[in-house]
Every structure is written in structure tokens, then in C-alpha cells.
Amino acid sequence: MKRFKNLLIIVGFAVATVLTVNVAFAQSLLIRIEEPETPSNLSSLKINFVTMDIENREVLVKCFKQGPLDAGFSQFGSDITTIAGGDTGFCLADSSVLTTAGEYKFYATAEAGIDTSTSQTVTVYSDYTGPGKPKDFKVEYKDSCEDKVSFKTADDGGETTKVNIYRSTSKNFEANAGTLAHTVVVGSNTSASATISRPCGDKYYYGAMALDDTGNHSDIVVQTISKTETVTITVSETEETVFGDIIQAIATEGGNLPQVTEEIESGEVAGASEDGTEGDESDEDGVEGEVEGAQNSLILGISKQGWVIILFALLLVGILLLRKKKQN
């Protein structure tokens, strides 16, 4: 009876070992995708993914999306095959996927042999349609070393949330961080003005364009110098955020921003977006935790065959111990 109990202990330990191995290998295939920056004004998004398969098999990746007009998730793009063991790649959500402004959700799956893994779901707000062009643009030169710039924003249904004013001593210049003079926070269909200081004796030429919350901009409106002459301004598409432009402008001009006095038509919506929701934090820690956990559960990457050898060795040791105890 005692010998039978000892045998049960050995068999139970062996079963537990097998179960532990199966759980470990169930997590050998992993896939994670990045958190896109949101909101996004890009008409094409590359959502990067990373796959890992400790059994060194080819991994098949599929990308899925749910848009504002979709009832559920559906696959987009072709299947993606990675090299053995895993790799990095991306799911391309272009204009055929981002068909309208709104919230999009994405995830990806990985398949290797009979094993599957599903990534986390990420969300991005996509809007790459710009606001309307400001109108009634006027520049008034004052004697007190100031220039008054006035305009009216387009009636674009709330797309406009701010207007950038650019200036230069040249009649032909580029709208970028170095020529950004001021940003007026103002809503759609609203008259506004900004009185901007300048070095006495210098003459500046002006232009302006509207922006929305996602960084899309309108066509630029320029100053009319005379009946036959206007200012020529080209737009630098490297500009994405107003706050980044202001910081860069400070560095470019030695920290001396012009003094500004604003006037905005009362009774209209004028102010920054009230949506104070912060973007989701990066999930990189989660990626590292899962990968590290999978590696640790395998105990230095021992294969299934290795675990079988270890299991038989344990059984053999148990049998020998029983025989020795019987002889004693």
C-alpha cells in the first residue's frame, strides 16, 4: 500500500509537469500592434505589428478594422506572411479603409500551425478633411509699431478651431514655424482680429490659414498689396501642430515673440476644443511583460522533446528510489 502511494506521488508530479509544459507552449505565439497617434489627419495609416513564435514557424498575420459606419469588424488588406520565428510589419489603412471621419478600431491576428494569437484592440480618430479658407483678410499698418490683421473664418460647420497668422519682410515667403507670428483660437463663421507688434521701421507682409483639431489646414489667404499685386506664400507641409510651431518659432527668433492684442466677435464660439481627453498611454510595458513571461515559462527555451526527456528521467529516478527502499 505504501509503495502504491509513492507511485501515485511520482505519477501526480509527472502529470503536473506535463500540464505546466502545455500551458507554457500555449503562449509561445504572440502578436502586438502599436497605438496610433490620435486624432490623426493622415489619409493613410501604417499600424505596425510585431510577432513572435518560439517554435520558429512562419506566422500568418491578418488585419481587422471597424469604422464609424461598420456594424462589426472585418478583415482589410491581404494576409501577411512573416519569416520563421516572427517579424515586424504593418497593417496599411489607406483611404479605401478610412472612408469617412470618425472613430476606427483595429486589431490583428497571428496564426502558426494550429496556434493562434490575437492582439489588443487600438482606437484612432481619423479626420483628414481641412476647414474652409478665411475671408475678408485685411492688414492695417499703424504708426505705433503695430499691425492689425483682421479676417472672418469660413462657415464650415465647426471645422475651424484656430487661425495661424504668418508674416515676413519679404513679399514672397513660406508659411512655416519661422514665419508664424500668432495663432488666434477662434471658431467657424466668426470675425476676429489681432494687433501684432513689430520692430519700428520694418514693414511686414501677412497671410493666414485656418486649422482644425486634427491639424488639417485650409488654403492660405494672402494680403492684397495693391490692385495688381498680392503677397505670395507657399505652405510647408511639415507643419503639424500649432504648439510645436510656437516653440520652434521661439527658438528661431531668439525667444522674442511679438506682442499681440486680439479682438473676436462676441456671441460666437471661440476657444480651444473642450475635449480634454488625453491619448492612451503606450502599451510597450505590456508587450515586454508578455514576451518576457513567455520566455520565462519555457525555462531557457527548452523544447517539447527536452521536456519529454526530463519527464522520463524523473520517472526513472522515482522507480530507482522505490527499488532501493524495497531492498533496505
Rank of each mutant, 00 (worst) to 15 (best):
E284K: 04
A110D: 05
S78G: 12
P258T: 07
A270R: 12
E55G: 03
Y125G: 01
S170V: 03
F25C: 05
D147N: 10
G244V: 01
F106Q: 02
D70N: 11
C200Y: 03
E262A: 00
L92W: 02
V235F: 11
A175R: 12
N48M: 00
I83F: 04
V15H: 13
E55P: 00
A208D: 09
D53Y: 04
V269M: 11
T109P: 01
I309F: 14
R198F: 01
E103F: 02
I246V: 12
S266M: 09
F64K: 12
I246Q: 13
S193H: 06
K138A: 12
V222E: 10
K203L: 05
K152N: 08
I299Y: 12
W307I: 08
R32V: 02
G244R: 10
S168G: 09
S266V: 11
L320D: 07
V21I: 15
N216Q: 07
T82W: 03
T277D: 04
K133R: 15
K46V: 00
T190K: 07
K2V: 07
F25R: 12
V15T: 15
Q75V: 11
L69M: 13
T238Q: 12
F243Q: 13
K133V: 13
L257H: 09
S303W: 03
E34N: 08
D155W: 09
T38M: 00
S273Y: 02
K65Y: 13
L42R: 10
T99K: 14
P68M: 06
T261R: 11
P134E: 11
S126Y: 02
V260M: 03
H217Y: 13
E281G: 08
G85D: 01
A251Y: 09
S117R: 06
E284Y: 09
E284P: 00
F312I: 14
A108S: 12
L257S: 06
T81N: 15
A294R: 11
E35A: 00
Y104C: 05
K105A: 04
V185G: 05
V149M: 01
T252L: 04
R3D: 14
Y166C: 03
T17F: 15
G89L: 00
G254T: 07
P131H: 05
D155N: 15
T252M: 01
A313E: 15
E240L: 07
E253H: 09
R32W: 07
S226V: 04
E229V: 04
G301H: 06
V184D: 04
K138T: 12
S297V: 03
T214V: 09
V235C: 04
E290I: 03
K105M: 05
I114P: 08
T241Q: 05
G130P: 11
A101D: 07
L300R: 08
V317N: 10
G289D: 14
N164G: 06
E268A: 10
